[in-house]
């Protein structure tokens, strides 16, 4: 079986996979990182979003082999080493932006990328459009939009440090 070597949340692993294994399967089944979820089979829901070399990617839409040599960050890897939550995690909790929590990992990973890539700041409308690739069935998005909006100043202040 082919082998893939990648760095996930700072830790490098080499894993044997089938050619057809998806990245999300590698993360969940081989590395035990079950925070990344699978909510669909048509690349529509975004429950599986992770960062690959700093860009948000749907891990259900990429073969594990395509991730060879990359740096992957999952929801388990965004808090600081001392356990301090990422501002996006903090704001999701503060603004009640999650209910069942199933969409949350993908939503948080998409939101971090969205805010980081837009240092000029995003309007409510732009946030809503930026979330087009992520479905949440519980919240009606109202509080997710609020949380992402609130995280903007925190994230940009932190980036400026």
């Amino acid at each position: 079986m082919p082998q893939v070597t990648l760095t996930v949340n700072g830790k490098t692993s080499s894993v044997e996979v089938e050619a057809r294994t998806l990245l999300v399967e590698l993360l969940r089944d081989k590395l035990g990182l079950t925070g990344t979820h699978v909510g669909c089979d048509t690349s529509q829901c975004g429950a599986c979003v992770v960062h690959i070399d700093g860009n948000s990617v749907k891990a259900c839409t990429m073969l594990a082999l395509q991730a060879d040599g990359t740096k992957v960050t999952t929801i388990e890897g965004i808090a600081a080493a001392d356990g301090t939550l990422h501002p996006m995690q903090e704001m999701f909790r503060e603004h009640h932006a999650l209910q069942c929590g199933f969409c949350t990992p993908g939503m948080v990973m998409s939101a971090i990328d969205l805010v980081a890539k837009n240092p000029q700041g995003l309007s409510e409308d732009e946030i809503r459009h930026g979330l087009e690739g992520n479905l949440c069935r519980c919240t009606g998005y109202h509080n997710i939009v609020k949380a992402i909006d609130a995280s903007q100043s925190l994230m940009h202040a932190k980036a400026a440090e």
Partner: peptide, 19 residues
């Protein structure tokens, strides 16, 4: 009150059946 359960869900530590 901010939700107790959120801490595990925002950290990827939820325990769903498929996990």
């Amino acid at each position: 009150v901010r939700r107790t359960e959120d801490l595990r869900f925002i950290s990827g530590n939820g325990n769903y059946t498929d996990d």
